[in-house]
Amino acid sequence: MKNNLRYYREEKKLTQEELAKMAGVSRQSIISIEKGHYIPTSLLALKLSVVLKIKTEDLFILETKDWK
């Protein structure tokens, strides 16, 4: 799964720490999601999309390999 978290975070001029605080998670979680090391649950994905005011499907994008 691809994600545009970093792009939208930087667009909103938020630091990882600020976004983490707004979503109620650790900075390490944001780092891991941005790097693609961790795929968040639907709950956290929705929280992040609410915080960034972006549609969830724009933030997290399914790739062809995800269907296999």
Partner: peptide
């Protein structure tokens, strides 16, 4: 528990 206990800590 971690300082910030979230789903990533669980993971």
């Amino acid at each position: 528990r971690e300082k910030v206990e979230d789903e990533f800590a669980d993971f």
